[in-house]
Computed example of a mutant assay.
Amino acid sequence: MTRHFAIVPAAGSGSRMGAERPKQYLDLCGKPLLWHALATLTRVARIDAAFVVLSPEDEWWDSFDWTGLGPRLRVLRVGGATRAASVTNALQAVAAEVHPEDWVLVHDAARACLSVAQVDALIDALADDPVGGLLALPVADTLKRADVDGRVLMTVSREAMWQAQTPQMFRHGLLSRALAAAPGVTDEAGAVEALGLAPRLVAADATNFKVTYPQDLALAAQILHARSVQ
């Protein structure tokens, strides 16, 4: 029986937030931003372990109490200069305990509003898939391509367009090969696509957004508060 493992790369600086500390450690509802994604992943019954990937020079992690997330949370201080490098290093670090056919779910540390239901839906949808896939959101807005002056160059059809989210779920062996062959990608699905394979898109919703700018923290707090009072 194949197992499921999560990898959360969290070695970045989050420079677009303009904050004094790395984005993953900014406060969100009294916890570090990163805590919320890890809390969700460690609550998913079918995930055997969740590996958070930190920079070797990370000085913030030990400032917080993570013990409430339980024994399935594991720390890997092997983060690289890019997301792809961090994930590649993590895949190598866990290779002795994760079988090539085991599933790996890579999730953005800044997608704090991920729910257990969304993860379960992804796992269910890809259980027998030969490639793997990712959570994604069908594009609803009209898309415009800009020129160098910031003016509309053309309107791009939104038909069959999806916005990639995470987790992105692939087997350990396949993902390792894909990232080795295409280390410059911005997400795992892109590396798998570069092998000539077609990852499956699993519909999610807009709550699973990536906190990128300061105003995003307020929206994430509203979503998490609304869930807590339901």
Rank of each mutant, 00 (worst) to 15 (best):
T2D: 09
R3F: 08
R3D: 14
A6Y: 08
I7T: 08
V8D: 11
A10H: 11
A10E: 13
S13L: 10
S15Y: 04
M17E: 00
A19W: 09
R21G: 03
P22I: 02
P22H: 02
K23P: 03
K23S: 15
Q24A: 08
Y25D: 05
G30K: 04
P32K: 13
L34D: 01
W35K: 00
H36R: 13
A37T: 15
A39L: 01
A39I: 00
T40H: 00
V44S: 10
V44I: 14
R46L: 05
I47H: 04
D48L: 13
D48M: 10
L54T: 06
S55P: 09
P56Q: 06
D58H: 01
D58K: 01
W60F: 14
F64Y: 15
D65E: 15
G70F: 04
P71I: 02
P71D: 11
L73P: 03
R74V: 08
V78E: 15
V78L: 09
T82C: 05
R83E: 02
R83K: 12
S86E: 04
V87I: 14
L91N: 12
Q92K: 09
A95Y: 02
A95F: 00
A96L: 08
A96Q: 02
E97G: 13
P100M: 06
D102S: 01
W103P: 02
L105T: 06
V106W: 01
H107R: 05
H107Y: 12
H107S: 07
A109E: 15
A110Q: 15
A110C: 14
A110N: 15
C113S: 07
Q118A: 13
A121Q: 11
A121S: 13
L122Q: 02
A125S: 14
A125R: 08
A127E: 13
G132E: 04
G132M: 07
L135N: 09
L135W: 03
A136V: 05
P138S: 02
P138L: 03
V139R: 07
T142C: 09
L143G: 10
A146G: 03
R151C: 11
R151T: 09
M154D: 05
V156R: 05
R158F: 09
E159P: 07
M161R: 14
Q163E: 13
T166P: 03
P167F: 05
P167C: 09
Q168C: 05
M169P: 00
M169I: 00
H172K: 15
G173D: 11
G173L: 05
R177S: 14
R177P: 01
A178V: 07
A178I: 08
L179T: 08
P183L: 07
G184Q: 01
V185W: 03
A191L: 14
L195S: 00
A198P: 00
A198S: 12
P199V: 08
P199C: 01
P199Y: 06
V202N: 07
T207R: 12
F209C: 11
F209H: 04
Y213V: 06
Y213F: 09
P214Y: 06
Q215W: 02
A218Q: 10
Q222C: 06
L224A: 13
H225T: 12
A226K: 07
A226E: 02
R227Y: 03
S228D: 00
V229H: 06
